[in-house]
Amino acid sequence: MFIELDLQSETPLYEQLINQMIEGIASGALQPGDRLPSVRNLAENLGINLHTVNKSYTLLKQDGFLQVHPKKGVIVHPDTMPGITAEFEAKLFRQLRSLAAEAAVRGMTEEAFVNQCRKLYGDTMIKREGEGQ
């Protein structure tokens, strides 16, 4: 699996795991219907507590990215990904506001900040489109 956690990061491990799984879905590395390792197996492979993996899986399930089946285990949602909700937009606004403020304080121009956002979004879409070829 493509997960790499930074044990020295200030970002909690469960958030790192969530972010990397969502990035995997966005990039096409994780496809709808893909089976994920069990909580125990992923925790062992990453060398982290199984409660950390369980928390990540639970939050991803609540947000509609994963499904849990008694026989299949944990899978990437096979039908639809979650849509844009008011809660998502509020979360996006909070996170971008914080990053924009830091970028401004550090002297980054608005144009440079927007270009970074475009590049990241564009890179994700290129990977997704390239998967279908």
Score class of each variant (00 low, 15 high):
G83D: 12
G28F: 12
T124E: 08
I48L: 03
Q133P: 11
T124G: 03
T109H: 04
S9L: 00
M1C: 11
E23F: 06
N49C: 12
I84D: 15
I84H: 07
L96H: 13
L60Q: 02
D34V: 06
D123A: 10
P37F: 07
M108E: 13
Q116V: 11
Y57S: 08
E44M: 09
P32W: 02
R94T: 07
H77N: 12
E129S: 13
L99W: 01
R35H: 08
Y14C: 07
K71P: 00
A26I: 02
P70G: 05
L30W: 08
F65N: 05
A43N: 07
P37K: 13
L60F: 06
Q116F: 14
G73M: 02
Q95E: 15
Q31A: 14
P12N: 08
F88G: 05
R128M: 15
R118T: 10
A86D: 13
Q62K: 15
F65T: 03
R106L: 13
G28E: 01
G64K: 02
N41T: 14
P37Q: 10
H77F: 08
M21P: 01
I48T: 08
G64L: 10
Q31H: 09
L92E: 14
Y57K: 12
Q62P: 06
P12L: 07
N41P: 02
E111G: 04
S27R: 15
Q95M: 02
Q16H: 04
A86G: 09
L13H: 04
L36F: 04
A43I: 05
V76P: 06
E111V: 07
